[in-house]
Design a protein around this nucleic acid. Structure first.
Length: 860
RNA sequence: GGGCGUUUAGCUCAGUUGGGAGAGCGCUUCCCUUACAAGGAAGAGGUCGGCGGUUCGAGCCCGUCAACGCCCACCA
């Protein structure tokens, strides 16, 4: 075995072995209770980023641990076709060759995308393997594979039949660059400094006019009315009158509508039904015409001098023309939020068009109830509020997209006006027998994602997997897609499966840099997990992420943490090396603990048992940071710093060697098991050295038996620490031999202590008596040790050392006495708390007496 | 405008029924002791954002203020 941990070499070794052994398939644990996670499907165009690394690590910890605990654990992998994103990527590739998708046509373009997917779509899977993710590749899915496409079609048709999907002419968010509608949630708003333009519209009868304000001056070309508040005294007489729209010359009415806020601007609003969602509704209320003035590229099409200008050019030209016409009042700076396409950042245009919608109200109510009832629990709980709030305020979901890559909407139209929505492609019109043509649009990518928890298990077929693994046990995902994805999976899962798709929803935070900043390419602070893997290894990255990951909190990550985790790996490596050089027999893979262990062996086994129980509790509540922090400290401090050192003399002692080997082997074995979900490669490698046969990934989770805690071992440790402190204070070399005379009222000193003290503190133990002048006193439990000072020390430094200990005890005593002197404390506090306080005070008093005497004698 | 979160050691953060302020990294001193110097030992460092309240007792509960961050909203 090498002397140094080399993560890169090890990490090449094990993944295929796990896959070949079938460990990742739930069939590996026949008869096990089911446990299922579906992966949040990454985009086929995607490359692994640090957020994936965190997410995959957490899921892998969950799944590997459950598998070791005997569950039939399934983690379903797969990718998302990512409609707009993927189409954009392929379009960009084609553009390099000077090809537009319309040049080659729909079928050829879609073929190109499939070709792209065949060539590059597996990249993300390779990266997921590199992370060590224990997914079952035999069950891999793609949102556009045959089965999932069938599920999408079934859902669409059924929702249509239930009147929960409809087609309508509405104002939707339009991306003029992607040339498609977007859902409300796909628009990202940002505050920007724009302008507020005030324009006066004259009355048709020439009696003055009304001044309105807008941030989008060009939309005035499509105005078909002006609205005021019905109670606004300023305009009460104007309602019903007719205005003459400048530049256009259209006659438009003044209407009264509650929507208008009299406090804002002039209290009069121009109404553009075809280019603003509020105006569309207002227009509908008052029977105003919707005049469309732009095309799908946001280029002006209204007849007139502005034709062919894009919306931003038109904005300037319209203002100039208004100024020339004397209708422009003021142009002021104005901060407002502007919507952008979440895929390409282009400013979104409200656009009137014919689209497909999902009626969400009937779907949201049960989805809210499932969380309220506790069928599904968010971790941490506070996300439930956001979830409720969002669900309660949802508007109908626009699901049609004017792109080519995706699930084509299964609707056919006939010239006779018939609309056919069907599971099978129709040959001809059911009404008139005429020719039909299919809807050109595809579905929102999130439509298929919403079905992921059951479509990946075979739905709509009633498969064995579906029966076994639905509902999924837990979903691990970032808070940023709760609305996009989680909320919709809840809706669809409950609607089609009758049951919420998950028991737990573990929400992860964002990975940030060491200063807590968001990772971004422009700041240059982003960490590429694959670079980290190549330089330091995947295991150190995983451990670093886990140690920083508190539930729902953002995760700060610095390369220093990864390096620290790697150092831990080296520590573990060398700890095992020590074990191997002393354990000349196989360690039993499961179970196998010494019966009736003593001394240090009992101590470490008791600590192991206690730690394992707490570790399990922490993991069960998704507190991985705490769980692995606990295990990490146990391993480094208690196991390696204390127990391994204490084991060395025991391994040389014929009386204890057998028991010590058993103990050391058992503890090292269990530590590897406990760490395996976090750092699978390293632990598997070490397991192969320590145990020999079988894969750790398929081993059983440890259940160390309870062991009575041997308190006297901590007294020994206290004495060792006391001696070390004494040496450190006085600059006495760790190697310089010392003799400690012991007074041992409880007879806790065992003969094996002598070797321990020699090894751990270079101390010879001697039976002694209460000493005063010329000695220093070490206290541990009821045990006292005396070291003769002659020629050893600087008296002042020793006085300072004792004084410091005294100060600490005095502070404790003062605090305790304060409490105990308070009648309301002794009366009202629980009896055990009071009793504890009394003992604390008594111990402090005793220690003070001894130390004070010592201090006096030191001066004398 | 509404909602949520954060504020604890130089840095990043734990601290879950209110009962002796913690970890990692960094820093100081000593030590190459036969698993590991990518190591070991000892140590310094905090009025737990401010104010007020409840309580025998508050980092933790309540109120309030402040700073920072995030989400939502039909800001013409």
């Amino acid at each position: 075995m090498e002397a140094t941990y080399n993560p890169i070499a090890i990490e090449k070794r094990w993944y295929e072995a796990w896959v070949e052994a079938g460990v990742f398939a739930p069939e590996y644990r026949p008869g096990g209770e089911p446990f299922c996670i579906v992966i949040p499907p990454p985009n086929v165009t995607g490359a692994l980023h640090i957020g994936h690394a965190l997410n995959l690590t957490i899921q892998d910890v969950l799944v590997r641990r459950k598998r070791m605990q005997g569950f039939a654990a399934l983690w379903v992998p797969g990718t998302d076709h990512a409609g707009i994103a993927t189409q954009n990527v392929v379009e960009r590739d084609l553009a390099v060759e000077g090809i537009d998708r319309h040049d080659i046509g729909r079928q050829a373009f879609v073929d190109q995308v499939w070709e792209w997917k065949r060539r590059y779509g597996n990249r993300i899977n390779t990266q997921i393997r590199r992370m060590g993710a224990s997914v079952d590749w035999g069950r891999e899915r793609f949102t556009m594979d045959e089965g999932l496409s069938k599920a999408v079609r079934e859902v669409f048709v059924r929702l249509y039949e239930e009147d929960l999907i409809y087609r309508g002419n509405r104002i939707i968010n339009w991306c003029p660059r992607c040339h498609t509608a977007l859902a409300d949630i796909e628009v990202e708003y940002e505050d920007e400094i724009g302008e507020l333009v005030s324009i006066t519209y004259p009355f048709a009868d020439g009696s003055g006019g009304i001044t309105v304000a807008t941030t989008r001056a060009e939309t005035m070309l499509g105005d078909t009315g002006v609205a005021v508040h019905p109670d606004d005294a300023r305009y009460i007489d104007s309602v019903g009158k007719t205005l003459l729209l400048p530049l256009v010359g259209r006659e438009i009415p003044v209407v009264a509508d509650e929507f208008v806020d009299p406090e804002f601007g002039t209290g009069a609003v121009k109404v553009t039904p075809a280019h603003d969602p509020n105006d569309f509704e207002m227009g509908a209320r008052h029977g105003l015409e919707a005049v469309t003035i732009m095309d799908e590229g946001a280029v002006i099409t209204a007849a007139g001098p502005f034709d062919g200008l894009n919306r931003f050019e038109a904005r300037i030209a319209v203002k100039e023309a208004l100024a020339a016409a004397g209708a422009l009042e003021t142009v002021e700076e104005h901060e407002h939020s502007v919507g952008h396409c979440y895929r390409c950042r282009t400013v979104v245009e409200p656009y009137l068009s014919l689209q497909w919608f999902v009626k969400v109200k009937p779907l949201t109510e049960p989805a809210i109830q499932a969380v309220k009832d506790g069928a599904t629990t968010f971790v941490p709980r506070r996300w439930e509020n956001s979830y409720f709030h969002w669900m309660e305020n949802l508007r109908d979901w626009c699901i049609s997209r004017q792109i080519w890559w995706g699930h084509r909407i299964p609707a056919w139209y006939c010239d006779c006006g018939a609309v056919i929505v069907a599971r099978e492609d129709p040959e001809s019109c059911a009404e008139c027998g005429g020719a039909v043509h299919q809807d050109e649009d595809v579905l929102d990518t999130w439509f298929s994602s919403a079905l992921w928890p059951f479509s990946t298990l075979g739905w709509p077929e009633q498969t064995a997997d579906l029966a076994t693994f639905y509902p999924n046990s837990v979903l691990v995902t970032g808070f940023d897609i709760i609305y996009f994805w989680v909320a919709r999976m809840m809706q669809m899962g409950i609607h089609f499966m009758g049951e919420a798709p998950f028991t737990d929803l573990a929400i992860t935070g964002l990975v940030r840099d060491a200063e807590g900043r968001k990772m971004s390419k422009s700041i240059g602070n982003s960490i590429d997990p694959l670079d980290v893997a190549d330089e330091h290894g995947v295991d150190p990255l995983r451990l670093a992420l886990l140690q920083a990951a508190s539930p729902g909190q953002d995760v700060p990550l610095d390369m220093e943490w990864v390096i620290a985790a790697r150092r831990f790996g080296n520590k573990l490596w060398n700890g095992l090396r020590f074990g191997l050089s002393n354990l000349d027999g196989a360690v039993p893979p499961d179970g196998g603990y010494p019966t009736a262990p003593e001394g240090a062996n009992a101590w470490i086994l008791a600590r192991l048992s206690d730690m394992t129980h707490r570790f399990d509790e922490l993991c069960d509540s998704y507190r991985f940071s705490d769980a692995f922090g606990l295990l990490y400290n146990f391993t480094w401090s208690e196991l390696f710093d204390w127990y391994v050192e204490m084991s060395k003399p025991l391994l040389r002692d014929p009386r204890y060697v057998a028991e010590t080997k058993q103990t050391l082997g058992a503890v090292l074995r269990d530590v590897l098991k406990l760490f395996h979900p976090a750092i699978p490669f390293l632990t598997e490698e070490l397991w192969s050295e320590l145990v020999g046969d079988g894969l750790l990934a398929g081993a059983a989770w440890p259940q160390p038996p309870a062991v009575a805690f041997p308190g006297h071992v901590e007294i020994l440790q206290g004495l060792v620490t006391g001696v070390r402190q004494f040496r450190s204070t006085h600059g006495i070399s760790p190697r310089q031999p010392l003799t400690v005379e012991i007074v041992d009222p409880d007879a806790v000193v065992a003969d094996w202590w002598h070797e321990q003290l020699e090894a751990l503190a270079a101390v010879t133990l001697a039976a002694g008596e209460e000493r005063g002048s010329g000695y220093t006193r070490l206290m541990s439990g009821n045990l006292q040790g005396f070291i003769r000072l002659a020629g050893l020390i600087d008296v002042d430094a020793e006085a300072a050392r004792i004084q410091k200990a005294l100060d600490a005890h005095h502070a404790t005593l003062a605090k305790s006495k304060g409490k105990l002197g308070n009648a309301s404390f002794t009366d009202q506090a629980p009896q055990e708390v009071v009793e504890k306080e009394r003992m604390k005070a008594a111990e402090a008093e005793e220690a003070i007496a001894k130390l004070e005497r010592q201090l006096g004698e030191l001066g004398a």
